[in-house]
């Protein structure tokens, strides 16, 4: 790779709710702390999407989500860069956007960017809102995943697409199984907020390693994140025990 590592937060003006912009910041800081040259880009929706090595998409409301998908399809850069090996982390509305289709505010299907072979329908029941714990599945060597979900979608994975994890608490993709998120190549989709990389620094380093073609990453001081993980996972364990007794 020549030049700095470029991390782009995609359309913070449309997909900017729930603090998911933090994922881009976390990736940039973790690269910087390892002495790498890194550029963090806030890619707003009225300009062409910049060339980047990692793209982060976040959560958003129904209307802006439809607009984001349409703009990304018309722009074409994201799909082209993924063909060239770029890494994508897509969260919640962003996760749905990088799939084949997703429901708009009216429940009608809208075309997604098609980076993941997934399809999202409007769920019939109440929204999935709450803490999630998931055993990792789609990426090897990750510790257990923790996050907070808030969505009303049922996301179904196509053949050849694997879930990011299997929920032990929470709803996840809501497709009747216990899958959470999806992984294909270097594209990761998930419903987890928190933001997800604040709670799962291991996943952040997987994405960085992919973008750096498997370069070795020296360990960082993650005591703050470790403290948060222990507290969140401990709280969920105690909740489960209480429910059982």
């Amino acid at each position: 790779m020549s030049g700095p590592l470029r991390v782009a937060v995609v359309y913070p003006d449309l997909l900017g709710t729930y603090g998911d912009g933090g994922n881009g910041l976390i990736l940039a800081r973790r690269a910087e702390w390892r002495g790498l040259d890194v550029e963090l880009l806030q890619a707003v929706s009225d300009r062409p999407l910049p060339e980047a090595d990692i793209y982060c998409l976040g959560g958003g409301e129904d209307g802006p989500q439809v607009r984001a998908a349409r703009t990304l399809v018309d722009d074409g850069t994201l799909a082209r860069r993924v063909q060239g090996g770029a890494v994508v982390l897509a969260v919640c509305a962003g996760f749905q956007v990088v799939g084949r289709s997703f429901p708009g505010a009216d429940g009608e299907p809208h075309e997604g960017v098609g980076l993941l072979d997934i399809e999202t329908l409007k769920g019939a029941g109440p929204r999935a809102v709450g803490e999630v714990v998931a055993e990792p599945e789609g990426i090897e060597g990750l510790p257990v995943l923790t996050g907070f979900e808030n969505h009303g979608g049922h996301t179904m994975l196509g053949e050849g697409t694997v879930a990011l994890g299997r929920v032990t608490a929470g709803i996840g993709n809501g497709d009747g199984g216990r899958g959470e998120g999806a992984v294909a190549g270097h594209v990761v989709g998930t419903y987890l907020h928190g933001p997800v990389l604040a709670r799962n620094p291991g996943l952040a380093d997987v994405l960085l390693a992919w973008a750096l073609q498997g370069a070795w990453l020296e360990p960082l001081d993650d005591s703050a994140s470790e403290g948060l993980r222990e507290e969140r996972l401990g709280t969920m364990r105690r909740k489960r025990l209480r429910r059982r007794t």
């Binding site: 729930y18 998911d20 912009g21 709450g130 907070f148 933001p195």
Partner: peptide, 9 residues
């Protein structure tokens, strides 16, 4: 609210 993700905004 149960989700403090907004701290990142």
């Amino acid at each position: 609210g149960a989700d403090p993700s907004w701290l990142w905004d």
